[in-house]
Amino acid sequence: MSECILKVENLWKNFGGLMAVSGYSLELPRGAIYGLIGPNGAGKTTVFNLISGVLKPSRGRIVFKGRDITHLRPDEITALGLTRTFQNLRLFPSLTVEENLKVAAHVHARCGFFSTLFCAPSFFREEKAIERKAREMLERFGLYEFRKEIAANLPYGLQRKLDIARALMTGPELVLLDEPSAGMNTKEADDLARLVAELQRDFHLTMIIVEHRMSFVMGLAEVIQVLDYGSVIAVGTPEEIRQNPKVIEAYLGTGDLVA
């Protein structure tokens, strides 16, 4: 097994009286795709919020590339190469598709205020590089023809793609995808699954995918964790998970576990 890129130790989070995450742990090998599933309200998004630094854990430790990131700000964590997408899409609605991407190139921009002010050559060089990178991403995601479109006016499926593209613009090594196929039809979801697999290969990404669409996550992930009431009730390959009685019970009546 290869190097462990992310290590989460005994993570807890409560909101007032509600225990959203209780004792979540994970050892994620570099280059792997892991799945995180569980019924509604199980705490999956909260786990992402904790890892990406949007929320601070009540207890526990998060180590990314050998570095303790538990107390870092989200932007610092992103700069280290860990970013995420959002379940409820948080695009910059009144910026264009291209601008949405360019914003995300910020982490690696080095050009200072005064070079910007006085139009130094380094400014134009950097702007060009950002443009090139944005264009590459636009083409890959099939968004190029929409680049001047306002993000809010994009069809929903493309908005989801833009969200992923934007995350990749930060040049991450680890990406957390929160329900990337939500709201898509089966064909769109299948296309997205193919794209995600491609991206993972081309950008050497490690990923954690939260999904309710079992076909999507079972097809991509090599290991799946099942979360229920904030704790992991099962870990295993997609095949093992599908047959695990505890998992079937957790999903009982929800009818979600039809692959």
Binding site: D75, R166, A167
Partner: peptide
């Protein structure tokens, strides 16, 4: 537009 998203993108 969205402070949380901006922060997660490194700002």
């Amino acid at each position: 537009e969205d402070e949380t998203a901006a922060q997660v993108l490194g700002i």
